[in-house]
Each structure stands twice: as C-alpha cells, then as structure tokens.
Design a protein around this nucleic acid. Sequence first.
DNA 1: GATGAATGAGCCTTCATTCAT
DNA 2: TATGAATGAAGGCTCATTCAT
Lengths: 212, 212, 212, 212
Amino acid sequence: MGAQQAVDEARPVSARVQRKRGKRIQEIVTVAAELFGERGYDAVNLEDVAERLDVTKGSLYYYFSSKEELGTAAIQTLGDEWTDRLEKLLERADGSPAQRLRALIHEHVTIAVRDYPAALRVFLVPRNWPAAQRERIKELRTRHNQLFRDLIEEGIAAGEFTVTGVDTVLQCLHASMSQAPAWCAELSGRAQRAAIDELTDTLMMLVGVHPD
Amino acid sequence: MGAQQAVDEARPVSARVQRKRGKRIQEIVTVAAELFGERGYDAVNLEDVAERLDVTKGSLYYYFSSKEELGTAAIQTLGDEWTDRLEKLLERADGSPAQRLRALIHEHVTIAVRDYPAALRVFLVPRNWPAAQRERIKELRTRHNQLFRDLIEEGIAAGEFTVTGVDTVLQCLHASMSQAPAWCAELSGRAQRAAIDELTDTLMMLVGVHPD
Amino acid sequence: MGAQQAVDEARPVSARVQRKRGKRIQEIVTVAAELFGERGYDAVNLEDVAERLDVTKGSLYYYFSSKEELGTAAIQTLGDEWTDRLEKLLERADGSPAQRLRALIHEHVTIAVRDYPAALRVFLVPRNWPAAQRERIKELRTRHNQLFRDLIEEGIAAGEFTVTGVDTVLQCLHASMSQAPAWCAELSGRAQRAAIDELTDTLMMLVGVHPD
Amino acid sequence: MGAQQAVDEARPVSARVQRKRGKRIQEIVTVAAELFGERGYDAVNLEDVAERLDVTKGSLYYYFSSKEELGTAAIQTLGDEWTDRLEKLLERADGSPAQRLRALIHEHVTIAVRDYPAALRVFLVPRNWPAAQRERIKELRTRHNQLFRDLIEEGIAAGEFTVTGVDTVLQCLHASMSQAPAWCAELSGRAQRAAIDELTDTLMMLVGVHPD
DNA sequence: GATGAATGAGCCTTCATTCAT
DNA sequence: TATGAATGAAGGCTCATTCAT
C-alpha cells in the first residue's frame, strides 16, 4: 500500500469502486422490488429492506436519498429488465403472429410467476405510489405495451386476429397477466406449468384465436 | 306530541335511534369504502375518513372499534350490495346464456365505474388488508364468482360457450373488470358508455362469443 | 296527575326525589369504589363504572361533575362507612386494651377482606390520586388512625403495651392491614378466617403482646 | 491510535458500542424505574420518561420495543440490584440472627428511602402492571423474600425469635418496609435516620425481639 | 462507506367531558 | 333525568430521515 499503488489506482480504484457501487445498488433495488411487490409500497419499511440486505437502515441513504427514490429505482429496474427479456424473446421468435403472441404471453406470465413473484403488482396498482413515480410507471408500461400492441396489430393485419378494440384487449391482457402470480403462487411444478398454459390459451381468445 | 305519539313511542328512542345509528354507520362505511378503494387500506388514515364525514377522528370509534373493523364493514357492505344488485339483475334477465352473461358483465362494469369508482380494488388487491379481512374478502368473492360461474357453465352445457377452463376464464374476467374503473374514470358520458360496451364485447370473447 | 296532585306533591316529590337521588348516588359511589379499589384510579374509566351500573357514561355527570369528584365521593363514602363500623365496634367492646385492640384489628381486616375486597388500596396508595383528593384521604386516615391511636396509648398507659413509637406502630399496622386483602383474597372460608386470626396475632406483637 | 489499538479492537465498534448501549439502557431503565415507582405504571407516560432523559419519546423505542418491555426491564433491574445489595450485606454480616435481621431490615429500608425513593411501590402494588410483568414481579419478590425467610427461620431455630407464622410475618415486614418511603420522604438527615431506626426496632418486634 | 443513535411527524386508539334532545 | 353522539386532548407506537463518528 505504498505511494506507487496510490498513484496506480488513482483512476482504477474509482472505476472499480464505481462497479462495486453499481452492483450494490442492483442488490438493493432487487431486494426492494421484491418487498414492494410482496407487500405494496406503503407496507414496506426501510428497516425490512435493510434487514434483508443485512445492512443498516442508514446505509440505504448512501445509495438512495429517499424511500421514494428507492421505489422509483425498483420500478425502473424491474420494468427495464422485464421488457428487455420480452424484447429478446421476440427477436428470437418466428412463426405466425399467433404463435409469437402466444410465446410472448407465455413468457410474460412465466417471468411474473417464477422470477418476480408478486412484483408485477407494482405496475398494476400505481395508485399507492407517489405522484412522481406514477409517470415513470406509465412510461414503462407504454413501452411494455408496445410489444404486445405491435404484435396484435400485425395479427389483425394478417387476418389472424379479430378484436373489437386493440386498447381494450391490451388492458384485459395486462390485467389478467398481472393477477396470474396470485393464482399460481401456491401451485408448484407441473400444476403451475399447466396453469400458465391454460392461461395463455384463454388469453389468446381475446384476439379470437381458439386453441385447436 | 300527544298521547298517541307517546303510545307509538313505547320504546321510541330505541327504535328510532337504532335506525339513525344504522344510517350513520352506513354513511361512514360508504365514505370509508370510497377511500379504501381509492388509496388502499394502508394509505387511508382515519383522519381523512373523519374529515370527509365532517366529524372528528374520535367519533368514528363510537361506531367502530378499530380501523380494521371499519375496513371489514366497508368490504362487507360493498360486497353485499354489489352482489345483491347482480343477483337482482339475473332474476330479471332472460334470453340465452350469452345474452345474460353479457348483461351481467355490463352491469358489473357499470357499477364499478359509475357507482363505486375505484372501490373494486378492495377485492382485487387484498394483500394489504389485515389477515382477518382477507378471509371475508375471499368469501365475498366466492359468492360473487358463483354468479358468473353458473352462467358460464350453463352456456357451455348449451354449446354456446367454448372455454379452456372455467376457473381461468373467471380469473381473467375478474381481473379485467376490476381494472375497468382505472381506464374509464376520466372518460365521461358517451365515451364512457362506449368503453364499457367495448369491454363487454371483448370479455365475451373469453368464452368464445364474438360480437356480430 | 291533575293540578291537585301537582300541588300535593310540590314538596313531597322533591323530598322523594331527593331520597331517590341520594340512593342513586350511593349506588354509583359504591360501584365506583369497588372499581377504584380493584384497578386503581387511573385504570378505571367511566365507561366501566357506567356499564356496571347499567347506565350511560353521560348520566354519571348528572350526579358528579367529574371523575375526580366521583373519586372523592368514593373515598369519602368508603372511609366514613368503614370508620363508623369500627367506632360502633369499640362502643360495644369491653375488656382490656389488648382485647379491644385485637378486636379492632380483627374487625378491620375482616371488613377489608370480606366487604371491600381491594378497596383499601385507595387509602394506601394515594399517590395516584389528584392532589385535591389526597387531602381528604389524609383527613379520613387521621380519623381512622385515631381509633387505633387512642387504644394503643391506653394500653401503654395501662402497662400492657410496649412500643418504641406510637406513630411508627400505627404506620406498620396500617400498611400490613391494607395488604391483607391481597394475601387472603384467594383463600376461602376456613382458611381465610385462619389467616385473619394469624395476622391479628402477628400484628399484636407490634405492641409487645404475644399470643399465649 | 496505533497498531496495537487496532488489534485490541479486532471488532472494536461492536465491543465498545455494546458497552455504550448497555450503559444507555441502564440510564433509561433507572429513570423509568424512578418514575414508575413515583407514579405507578399507568400514570407514567413515555413522554415524561423521555423528557427526564432529555431525549425524544421515539428514541426510547430504539432500546425498548414497548412501554411494557421498559416496565419489565425497570422492575428486573430494580429488583436485581436491590436483592444483590442485600445479599452482599448478609455475606458480610455476622452476629446473632437478631443482629443480622436488624441489619437486613435497616439496610432494606435505607435503600428504599434513600436510593430508590418511591420505587418499592413497584413491588408492592403489582395490580396495575400488565399480566406479563406480574409474574416477574412475583419471582423477584420470592427471591427477595427468601433472604428474610431464611434468617427468620434461623432465628426461630436458635430460639431467638417467636412468631405465629413465618409467612404472615414476612408479609407484614414487607408491607411496612414498603410504605416507609412515604413516611420518611419529607424528613431529612437526622430525623430520617431516627425514623429508620425506630422502624427497624418496631419491626423486630414482629419476631418477638424487643429493643433493649 | 457504514453504523448506531436520535428525531419528529404522523397514525391509531382511549377517555374524560360536553351537549342537544 | 337519562341518553346517544360528538369532541379534543393525550398517549403509545412506527418510520422515514438525519447525522456524528
């Protein structure tokens, strides 16, 4: 730990520290998102978040200047990750619009039920969030919705889908998918997979596609 | 204030007072249900409830012994009234299962959007409620569900409906209908009616019935 | 109920009413003293008092203008009655100072344990009472003490008693007798009588009188 | 702050902080015990405790999770310390049982009057305490009683003491000693010492020992 | 960076007291 | 007289936030 090292690390440390900080933030946000999803914004207190991270409440304020900001970050992170995964899926996916929509719905529900149990509620019930966050939530949802909207319109244009109104279908899709974790949480393994499949089939009917 | 009245009032206070008390309780419960619906259980404080009733916080405790009890009453009242209205509708309704289901959905959404703006969330997001209430919420929802379930099964038996699974359809129906107030709240008059109609049409597709 | 009666009862009613009022007050005071004794001044609320009397909280204010006043009345009534009984006993009693002191102690403890279970604490623990009452409590206690004091001094003069200081003996007597209900409450019948006898014997030793 | 200290402080904060925390807790408990003793459990509010410590009400909750817990700690601390001091006294004391009992009583009263003015009531009047604490109070009192009981029985065996019943004597002893602070509080210096001496002499008579 | 400690505002709840009827 | 209703001042408790170390 001589003077030389200090010089060597003048910048490198900063970079490493930066990475470390980013990682720490990610951990915090993930845990926070979990809790917010589980209990809702109001019911979560920073003590709980800190405890689950095995740090002190005060430490959180080193990374976030308020509960609200932590909330915003949680939403943002959650939403971005989610949308990224769906976008990646669509890049890989091929087949008819029906096949791709089915895959999209299936993936969406699977993520919700398996990877972020209860986190989706964050997007569904924005009323409890401070005004500042609601906007952000809306933005995220818009981006997220766009994936579904494009596909549905493609299907309509291709004559595969029949809908009364795209917006309405999107709302119903979202509402139903968001509730999925609540129904499937207690099921496990095979039963859960079956439930997700059935939900997917059912939701496809909203665009007039019946399972064979 | 003659003798006759005196006779009428054998135990006059008790009866009249009883009515009055019941009425007051109704007022309180209604206001409470509104607020709980708008903001969720946690975010509502009794100060707000009291203020909207133009009384003091302490007065509420003359009628309810705790916030939790007020919550329970709000849920109960809301749920009972709602289900009653739907049951009455079904008694009057005739026509094919499809026609009756359409009427039921339409009525349900109309109530939600028009008469109890935002109150449905109470049933949809029970996680924030104390354990005691969750049970009651479940009961109410079961009774409520039954109306839809019976009709759907009748439609299936009659060959009018096609579903992958009744339970799944019910869940999607409920989830979608419950979100309706959030979409339609800002619309007014004609636009709102149109939105409700379109939602009804869209949801009928969940049982395989397309609008003509 | 004509004019004549009204005249007839102009005073009589007043008198009867007066009696009735006095009786009502006695009932209230008795119940209040019970409760104050059982739980202590702070822990008693007027709701409880009213309930045990089967009236409304508000009604109590027709007879007493505050909780404090009710408290004062309870103490007063309790103390007067108690002292009266002891004074009556002494009028009847004869025999040596030792015999009479023994009788006095025995009666005192018996009243405490049997007739006013837990009410004595009112006098022993005046700290919880509002300042206004403490004076009254002291007065009562002085009068009450006098009975014991006179007898003890008589015994000393007669050479029957040996004490280091009369005041100190009085304090110890009082303290011990007041705690008696706490020890004897759960005992019943024979055992309770035995306990009271033994307590009496033990306390007589404070004036140097041993049981044979 | 050399290397050595660093070694000493392998987990330096933890240890020092631990000590500090313990000290703070002691301060709080002491103040609380004072107040509880002065006014009784019900009449004490945390605002007062906090004020006397020159902190905020909320701070108390950093150390104790409820008023009840603070109460328990106060009792425990008070009782333990008290009993410890008496036990230490007995270890040092020699002489006849009478001499030792006299010393024990004297010390007990002195502590009560001088070091814990009014705190003894906590043990004497447990009725106002939550059920949870009553048990603990009983335990402490049992341990405390044992000191006196052993000595008294020794004196009886040695033929020095005469009692009708050990338990009854213990009760009277306790009741009388506990009231002592109430009598001696306003006295000061010489008069107080005299009062304590006289009380000791008087109480010795309960076991049949007269002052010379 | 992290922690222990403290704060203060806010919420639920209790209760003595008042008052119109 | 008695009652139902309402009030307002506490009191216990929680929690986001701050800060010295």
